[in-house]
Every structure is written in C-alpha cells, then in structure tokens.
C-alpha cells in the first residue's frame, strides 16, 4: 500500500463496508471460477478500484439538506466536478445521501480526512471513497424507495422522515420534503 504502517491510523482509507463488499465480490468470483485455469490470474494483486477515486459517497444527510449546502461545505476541499443527490426511487425527493465528485484524487482523500465525520446541517455525515457514480445509483434501494437503513429504523430521526418507513403508520409517509417536478433530475456537469 503506502509503505510501512503509520504509527497513527489514517482517515483516508475506504471503510470496512467497502472492503467487505469488495472482498465478498472477489470471493464469489473465485468460487464461481472454481478450479478453472483462469484462477491463476487471481494470484496477481488485483488493481485497487479506489486507487485514483475522485468520488465520495456521502451518507447520513438530512432529507432537507440541499445541494447548495453540500456544495458549500465540500468545496472547501477542492472544486466539485459533479454532485449527484440520492433520491427516493418513487418520489424523486432527496433521501439522505449523495455522491460528490472532485477533479482530483487528492481532493477526495482530503475530503475523507477533513470533512468525513464532521457536521453538515447539524448532522455528523459519513464519507466513503467510491469507485465512481453510475447511472441508477442515485436511487434508494430500500423497499419503499429510500435507503435500506431507513426501512426499519426504530429511533425517531426528524431529519430522515421520522421512524423507519416499514414501521411507521402509512399516512405520515406521504409527507414530502420538497416538491420536485417530473423533470428528469438535472445534474452537475
């Protein structure tokens, strides 16, 4: 990796989440490949997909946090190339995450170090290096359209629609955070 292990842990490493997902994926692949000859290739160290990552996944945002707020904070680490807000799959309203893409890998690492774990809109936000945004990833993957973590959440989180959607009474679910028209959601270029 980056030479000898530092005497102090680094904050610009990918999270355990990314690593475990990646490992699982690699493991599945190996299983599938079985004892095929192609397995030989796996002996070579695999290219780190985050080696030059310029994108960050940003989590634990309030549903009410706007692009402008994200922009204001994240610009402190460098000019933002693109910002993709995470949206509820059905309502097309913000559902508490986004992708921030910088022009350089260094800016993304600095963001991990200086912004991840600090507050935006009075919530501690989480950042994670990401191999890059692909179309479709802007939508929540939970059953009701939001993020999976907001399905069964038992604590009342005002900034994220109260209780988990799967356990809240059906009526309150309709409350919309902001009205987005049916325009295809424009995006930073």
């Amino acid at each position: 990796m980056r030479g000898p292990r530092a005497t102090v842990e680094r904050l610009d490493q990918p999270s355990a989440y990314f690593n475990s997902r990646n490992k699982r994926r690699r493991f599945d692949k190996e299983q599938r490949d079985g004892d095929d000859d192609t397995n030989m290739q796996n002996d070579q160290p695999e290219e780190d997909p985050l080696k030059d990552a310029t994108t960050l996944y940003v989590g634990n945002l309030s549903f009410y946090t706007t692009e402008e707020q994200v922009y204001e904070l994240f610009s402190k680490c460098g000019e933002i190339k693109r910002l993709v807000m995470g949206l509820d799959r059905f309502n097309k309203t913000p559902c508490g995450f986004c992708f921030v893409e910088y022009y350089t890998h260094q800016d993304a690492l600095d963001c991990m170090k200086y912004i991840g774990g600090t507050k935006l809109d009075e919530r501690i936000i989480r950042t994670d290096l990401d191999p890059g945004f692909t179309e479709g990833r802007q939508y929540g993957r939970g059953k009701s359209g939001g993020q999976v973590r907001d399905e069964y959440r038992e604590d009342f989180d005002e900034g994220r629609g109260g209780l988990g959607r799967a356990i809240q009474p059906p009526r309150s679910r309709d409350r919309e955070t902001r009205d987005f028209d049916d325009d295809p959601y424009g995006r930073l270029k």
Partner: peptide
C-alpha cells in the same frame, strides 16, 4: 434552474 444547482447547471448546459 432555480430549484437547485443541478437544475441551473442543466439549464446552462
């Protein structure tokens, strides 16, 4: 494009 930066940037594009 007044709804959000994304909107205005799409409009400018």
């Amino acid at each position: 494009g007044s709804k959000s930066l994304s909107h205005v940037l799409a409009a400018i594009e």
